[in-house]
Design a protein around this nucleic acid. Structure first.
Lengths: 207, 207
DNA sequence: TGATTTTCCCCTTTTATTCGCCCACAATAG
DNA sequence: CTATTGTGGGCGAATAAAAGGGGAAAATCA
């Protein structure tokens, strides 16, 4: 059973009152808070709210209103669908935390970009010198254009996929450069390579 | 039963209204919102939407429209909160993308944890050997307990803040170990140190 | 006994419903 | 090819009921 506008106002008022005072309001206090002249009106509202199961009360007991779990849940649910993390400042070794100018927040959209984004889990250490480690999650954006130096996921000759830095070389050749001194660059003709995505972000989770 | 264009507009308007106000609109409010001059028109739309089972209402009751579970589900599916990124598989240098078993998704909550989380931007390279770089964002959780080897943000002697690995040493001493061979560990009495947070995640954004 | 809650009867405002009529467009029967 | 019919969309006005509100007295706690 849905609430009317007024009924919701009454319910919200009671919720706020309880929140502030830690005890429930009398009809008089509700009437004053909502600018009502008659307690009968308050009583009517409370009655319909009880009928609609948004609160309970003891018969003829003063200050006995209790909000139902249902309402409290709806309140909570309407709030946190998205997660934002406050960005408090910058940290440098050996100096206090520099606070950020305004109250900034981080959210996933900051990393995911706007377009067609997907994720992969990194296996191996071929990009370790770029500080992309085994087990890291990477976010990639499907792109049509790549610039030299971009880190990309490339499909080579239709069967082998790899994460490397992308460079154009003379003679329609692409150099895929690992960031690991133990590994050698891969040179492939441009027609044998297909770019599946460009690196947007690295996400690493601890424990 | 499919909806016409106009019917969908009406339904979406109601859904948005409910979302914003937490109570359902009157026919008048719907009329205003959709720029209709007659309540009869609104009534007709509501009636067909009810017949097509996209919503319910109480006869002659004001503000009693309730969207059907069916519609709400469709909404949720078609409007992903943008916070979820499909995890397509794992990538290893030199082998095809291994696909992940189920259709997995990544979202921010996976990294942020559940408790009191905050973010800082890293300055400097004192943790470079742990592949935490200048400019990276780190997510931290306020904790009361720390285990040896955890990466923490520590406040030393009330004025200096730093990101280091945490180890207990004999004699009520803490060793804060940088991950940079050029830097030496810091040894401080346990009473001079205050742990501000434990590292949950590293987030790095490219361009 | 005093502070509250409940009830009864009345009023006003808001809201939903119904009825008749209009237009545009598409499909279809003649 | 034109006339007819059906359907979605829309307008205004009249009507009736629900929701909102009031005063005062009765009934209950505590």
């Amino acid at each position: 059973m849905a609430l009317t506008k007024r009924q919701k106002q009454v319910l919200d008022f009671i919720a706020n009152f309880v929140d502030e005072h830690q005890y429930c309001p009398s009809y008089e206090e509700i009437a004053r808070g909502l600018d009502l002249a008659s307690l009968a009106t308050v009583h009517k509202h409370i009655s319909v709210l009880e009928a609609k199961n948004y609160l309970k009360r003891g018969f003829n007991q003063s200050r006995s209103i209790e909000l139902s779990a249902r309402y409290l849940q709806e309140q909570r649910r309407s709030k946190p669908p998205m997660r934002e993390i406050p960005l408090l400042g910058r940290i440098a070794a050996g100096s206090p935390v520099e606070s950020v100018e305004q109250r900034e927040v981080l959210n996933f959209a900051d990393f995911a970009g706007s377009g067609d984004t997907f994720a992969l889990e990194v296996r191996g250490n071929s990009m370790i010198d770029d500080h992309i480690c085994d087990g890291d999650m990477i976010l990639l954006e499907r792109v049509t254009e790549v610039r030299d130096g971009d880190i990309v996921v490339a499909l080579i000759a239709g069967c082998e996929t790899t994460l490397k830095r992308f460079y154009r070389e003379p003679g329609d050749t692409i150099r895929l450069q690992p960031a690991n001194s133990a590994l050698k660059p891969i040179l492939v003709p441009v027609r044998d390579i297909q770019i599946q995505g460009r690196l947007l972000a690295v996400l690493r989770k601890y424990k």
